[in-house]
């Protein structure tokens, strides 16, 4: 059975769809009320963010658009030091989408939400003409401890940068699907609760965190350097990159520094806590390939010390990172 325009009409088909797919898999006491808005209790300062997801293909090794939709917003909250609590999920579905695919996505979102400890408390569904595609928006709220201030402005000279794991897995996974190149690269879409909350709980002096999504590490570090008015120097040899991902990059002429992830982040941490922090990362499943990749100093921009010992300026990503011959 396929999604039809009637499923978005607001009438009987819409409510049946909501009951049979979304309410069934997202159920929680707040959503079950099915009011026009969710009424929430939150403690103290909150972080609030939104993100939209338009990836194709919809399903790929390691995840799908639904998993991305949960992890993306959850991770943005975590990067602010917030404990993610509540999400909304809005769907724009193109007619022709198989209902069973929609259900697969909903199940995936439900599982990711459980992993992240969040409830999906409100949602919306629209249906438009098209070819069976789907676009998802999620917004999220998280609670921040009053004493916690996570900001790039706090980065100081001598701070170190830890990267939680291998670069470019998600981007490489999607590209492999699109280009028909066989490998075992899996998207790394995952909620980052475990390492982030471990760092906070252990009282590690974390100045700022950013997840490494579109635009890759190169772009994220430039944003960090600019916001902190400091220079970040990276060590090429220490950058963790999976062998198959590096291989794919060589084949397509891409640079892992500019490939996106969906389950990796950088943390700028005070020098004195670097060993303790790295050890903590290594005790988590997600962070087992974490590495100290660089240091903060006076100056501006991002510089990479190459394996040959040379010096290379790293800018933000320009363009789309399309495969090239030359």
């Amino acid at each position: 059975m396929l999604i039809r325009m009637a499923h978005g009409s607001g009438g009987k088909e819409t409510s049946t769809l909501i009951q049979q797919i979304f309410a069934k898999h997202f159920h929680n006491p707040i959503l079950n009320e099915m009011e026009d808005a969710a009424v929430l209790s939150v403690k103290g300062k909150i972080a609030f963010t939104t993100d939209s997801f338009v990836v194709t293909p919809l399903f790929f090794r390691g995840g799908d658009i639904g998993r991305l939709a949960i992890c993306g917003t959850v991770n943005d909250l975590l990067m602010q030091g917030a404990i993610p609590k509540y999400l909304t999920a809005a769907f724009i579905i193109e007619e022709g989408m198989p209902l069973k695919d929609l259900e697969k996505i909903a199940v995936s979102m439900s599982e990711a939400a459980k992993e992240a400890g969040v409830m999906i408390v409100a949602g919306d569904t629209k249906v438009i003409e098209g070819n069976g595609g789907i676009y998802i928006n999620t917004s999220g709220i998280g609670e921040i401890d009053d004493n916690l201030i996570m900001s790039a402005k706090n980065c100081s000279v001598g701070d170190i940068v830890i990267l939680s794991g291998t670069l470019g897995d998600h981007h490489a996974c999607i590209l492999s699907h699109r280009m028909g190149i066989e490998n075992t690269i899996s998207s790394d879409a995952t909620p980052l609760n475990e390492p982030v909350l471990a760092l906070i709980k252990a009282g590690i002096k974390v100045k700022a965190m950013r997840d490494v999504t579109r635009g890759g590490l190169g772009t994220v570090l430039n944003e960090m350097a600019e916001a902190s008015h400091k220079k970040i120097t990276l060590d090429e040899q220490s950058l963790p990159v999976g062998e198959e991902v590096r291989g794919l990059c060589d084949i397509l002429g891409l640079d892992p520094l500019y490939m996106g992830n969906e389950g990796k982040f950088i943390a700028v941490i005070e020098q004195s806590d670097k060993e303790k922090a790295l050890k903590l990362f290594h005790t988590t499943e997600i962070g087992k390939r974490a590495a100290i990749i660089g240091e903060v100093s006076e100056g501006e921009g991002v510089t990479l010390v190459t394996t040959l010992g040379g010096s290379r300026h790293i800018d933000v990503l320009y363009g789309e990172g399309l495969p090239r011959i030359c």
Partner: peptide, 9 residues
Amino acid sequence: KVNYNGNIL
């Protein structure tokens, strides 16, 4: 069918 660092192309 060629193998390059685990990628088959």
